[in-house]
Simulated assay, not measured.
Amino acid sequence: MNIQTIPYVQAFKPSDYVGQTIIVIDTFRATSTIVAALSSGVKCVIPVKEIEDAKKLWKPGRILAGERFGAQIEEFSLGNSPVHFIQTSSCRGKELILTTTNGTRALSRVAQAKQVWIGSLLNARSIAQRLHVENTSNVLFYCAGTRGTMSFEDCVTVGAILEEWRQLDPQITQSHTSFDDLSLLCMSSFQFLHSQDQLHLLRESRAGKRNHSLGNEEDLDLSLKMNEFNVVPTYTNGVITASIS
């Protein structure tokens, strides 16, 4: 068993995903938004890199959503807000076209991978349960990061999933499992913060502070909730759909 963590978008190489189950993480806020949207009845999410690409995909029955550097794109109906999807039913049954600063760029780099899931604190246990049930042997956590560096919140989210998995299968931390150092750091960081009831400290990350400055407090509150939803979003052929764990 091999477990690796890629710290930010640009650190990923195409050769990284050969034979891997990839879990993409952008806690503040893209993957939290995707999890919340699918859990709230959105039919599917179509992630795209560029604003113009998103506009070209729009048609009746689809909704444009996205942000750049935390702020909603002016011409779009929605931003990148997980809270919106649990507070309204207006998107239920519709297709969501989403473009974000980092998260959807990470997804674009793994579009050809065999198995890609979307992870967040909101569905950490569900991801872990799927890893356990499928007896997954090679796992790559791909973090979006912030402006070309590792994000505190993404690191801790990786750790949350690993800890939930460890609770289901203690053997993943035994000597036959190969954790890279960053994955070990992620798990240790989560274990410490969670044991001290200190997950709120993730607000002090760069992305957390930026979202605070933009008035996205409700999104931060929701994104920091553990195991709020039991969905495992799966990215296949350019589209993210939900399966229930």
Rank of each mutant, 00 (worst) to 15 (best):
S120W: 10
N237H: 13
K49F: 06
A144V: 09
A37V: 14
I22P: 06
R130Y: 11
V110L: 08
T100Y: 03
A106N: 11
A124N: 14
K225M: 11
P60M: 13
G215M: 06
G215D: 05
F152G: 01
L162E: 08
D26P: 04
S90T: 10
S189F: 03
S137N: 11
M150K: 02
N227V: 09
G148T: 10
I172W: 04
L222D: 04
A207T: 07
R109C: 03
V24E: 14
G41W: 08
R210C: 03
L162V: 09
R68D: 12
T173A: 08
S137K: 15
W58D: 15
I25H: 04
I172K: 01
M150F: 02
T99N: 02
D16T: 00
G208K: 01
T100E: 01
R125Y: 07
T234H: 00
M150Q: 04
W58S: 15
P14H: 02
R203T: 06
N135C: 15
C91G: 07
L202R: 00
D221H: 08
V232A: 03
S81I: 07
L57F: 14
Q174V: 05
T27K: 00
D154I: 00
N211I: 01
E204M: 10
C44I: 01
S15E: 13
V18H: 08
G238W: 12
S205E: 01
L78W: 10
I127T: 07
G41I: 14
R210V: 11
P14W: 00
Q115F: 07
A65F: 01
F85S: 00
A124Y: 11
